[in-house]
Each structure stands twice: as C-alpha cells, then as structure tokens.
Design a binder for these strands. Structure first.
Lengths: 184, 184
DNA sequence: GGCCGCATGTAATCTGTTACATGATTCT
DNA sequence: AGAATCATGTAACAGATTACATGCGGCC
C-alpha cells in the first residue's frame, strides 16, 4: 500500500464516475492530453491488475459486452460503495505534504471536472491544513535553531516547500474556471 | 528498489564511513538528536535486513566481537568497494526533484560531517541542476498555457517547488559551518 | 516480579510491477 | 509482409516491511 498505489485506484474510480468504461478506454483516457498522464504513468498490465482489485473490493462491477471478432469489452461501473469511496476521497484534503505532488493534483483534476462547485472548498480546506503544517514546522524550527543545525535545515526545507504550496493554491483559486473547461 | 530503500542503504554506509559499528549501534545513531531520524525511520528488524544485504553486496564485511552474557556484536566495516560507492553517491547531486526531500538531505548530512570541504560543491552542483529543471519546466509550462489548463497547473506546482528548493540551497550555503559542528 | 536495554536476526507476508501471452483486424 | 490498434489478462518476480523469536542482566 505504498501510498502511490492506493491513490491511483481512486483516480481510476474517478474516471469511472462520469460514465462506465472498459479497461482499454480507461487506458486511453490516462494518456489523453491535459489528463493525468503528467501525474502518473501506468503500464497496461498494471492497469488491468488494479481494475481487478477494485472489482474484488466491490467498488466496481463488470458486465461483458460482446463484439464480433474482438475480445469482449468488460464494461466497468461504479457500485454505490465505489461512488461513496470516491466522493469522500475527493472532498478530503491530503494529510501530508508529500501527498500534494500526486494525490492532491489528482483530486483537483477530478474536483474541477466532476464537482466544480466544491473545488474551491477543497482548495480552501487544503490551504488551512497547509497553514497548520507551516505553523507547526516554524514552531519546531524555532525551538532548535542553533543547537541542532541539521534538523533546522530539514525544517527550513519543508517550510519552503509548504510556503510554495500555499502560494500555488492561491494560483489555483485565481484560475478556477479555466481548468475544467476542456472536459466533457 | 523503490528509491527510498536504495538511499537508506547509502546512509547506512555513511554511518560506517567514520568508524566500524555494529547493528545496534547504528540503530541508536539513527535515533540520535540532530541525526537522520527526521529524514527516515527504520524498524530494527528492517535495519538488520538491510545490513545483511549490504554484506551480500560486498559493501561491508563483518567480524564478530564476543561478549560475556550477551549476543556477540557483529562489527561491520566498509570494504573499499563500499567506501567508493558511498563517496561517489555522496558527491553526486540527485537527478529528480522528488529526491530532494530525503536523499539530498541525507547527502548534505554526510557531506557536512565527513567531507566538509566538498559540501559547497555538492550544493552548487545541485543548484545548477535545479536551475535546469526550472528552465525546462518553465519552458513546457509556457508552451501550453491556455489550451491545457490542468497540465499548466501541474507545471506551476513543480515550478514553485523547485524555486523553493533553490532558495533553500542558498540558505544551506550561507549557514555552512554551523551544520556540521555538533558531529564527532 | 516485571519491564527495559542490549543484540541479534529469520521467516513470512504483502504487494507493486512487469514480462509474457493471445489473436483478430486494418493500414501501409 | 509487417506493423499498429483493439482488448484482455495471468503468472511470476522482486523487494519492502514486519511480526515474531531469543535470552541475559539490571533496575524499580
């Protein structure tokens, strides 16, 4: 469950949220322009493995759609449980800074496309949390300023990263409408 | 070999660079104040597993030091190969931004303690590389400004992170002597 | 008597990741 | 003839992580 994997799964749920799709279609979607390909890259076989797992967990159900002279498409559809899991994931800010790089970006992607009205809420929540991190880090950094120079540097690093995130969140909010525009 | 692990191994080599130690001693060192505990946390059993691996790879050799009424200490010592691997790791800047968070911090930790004269070089090299990332990212962001708003946001995020890193590297250089002070 | 410190590992689990497999159709 | 697209997976590897195991001595 090395964080990255769990999140990819939510992203897959997100792609199924709008409409049922089959695996190959999802694969295309992941490679699409202005899509998630900048955030994650998945091998095809890995994708199918993940989808199978989601089926096992009862987040999706499958129905076969036969085709002539091609393997039948396995149309995947979110279950109520899957829907709920996805929405609750989508509305929850990430609890750790390192999860901004991929996980929050993914949430933002879907928030703009699927729930544009609440995307500002997500950003606000996340900014509050970032502000908490920042305060806590600054606090800890101050406490050990000179006696523990290495740890101080570590905190300075994190502080800088968080500050940049907060600044970036502001940019996100100022350019809100644009981001979702090219979606269905 | 999910990045994080490989790096921990180099950090272990670093702890053996100054002096031979046994596993339990390394474990203590990892928990020490102003040490690497802020960067990584290792379970004891995991540590022993990693040390065994380093032995297999011929980066360390072991000699048993008997004790009365205690398990014998297994004193670990760097081989020439281990020394070289560590030093070359130490002097090489990290090739990806996400490796700054743990890996570069670790390099800096050892650079200040073991090779203080070259730590400024490491910082400079890393800053150059960061500058390259930045230029490349800015370039790519400009190319897709309005047509691909999500990808643009992703780039903006990364740009902000890199800028903060560069700024932090400046701080590192300005507070140079202090960081190594409390080491042996 | 019970807990902590010392000092070591092994053995199993868990899970991410990928190499490989299949096979028909259409385009060049 | 050969490559690419469509469409699916399985089976196995690799390697991170940890639960568990051991056992003595000293302290409260």
């Amino acid at each position: 469950m090395t964080r990255s994997a769990l999140t990819i799964e939510y992203a897959l749920l997100g792609l199924l949220y709008q409409q049922p799709r089959h695996g190959y279609e999802i694969y295309q979607e992941l490679l699409a322009e202005d899509g998630l390909s900048l955030v994650w890259r998945l091998k095809q076989s890995h994708l199918y493995a993940l989808l199978a797992k989601l089926e096992q967990q009862n987040y999706v159900t499958a129905t076969l759609e036969p085709q002539d002279s091609r393997p039948p498409r396995k149309i995947l559809q979110l279950t109520p449980a899957g829907r709920e899991a996805f929405l609750s994931w989508l509305r929850t800010p990430v609890p750790q800074g390192r999860q901004m790089r991929q996980e929050f970006l993914a949430k933002l992607y879907f928030a703009h496309r699927l729930e544009p009205t609440t995307s500002a809420t997500l950003i606000d929540k996340q900014r509050d949390i970032c502000a908490d991190w920042l305060a806590s880090l600054q606090n800890q950094a101050d406490m050990l300023a000179t006696e523990r120079p290495f740890e101080w540097l570590v905190y300075q690093f994190r502080i800088g990263q968080i500050e940049a995130m907060i600044h970036w969140l502001d940019v996100c909010e100022q350019a809100p409408a644009a981001v979702g525009e090219h979606a269905a």
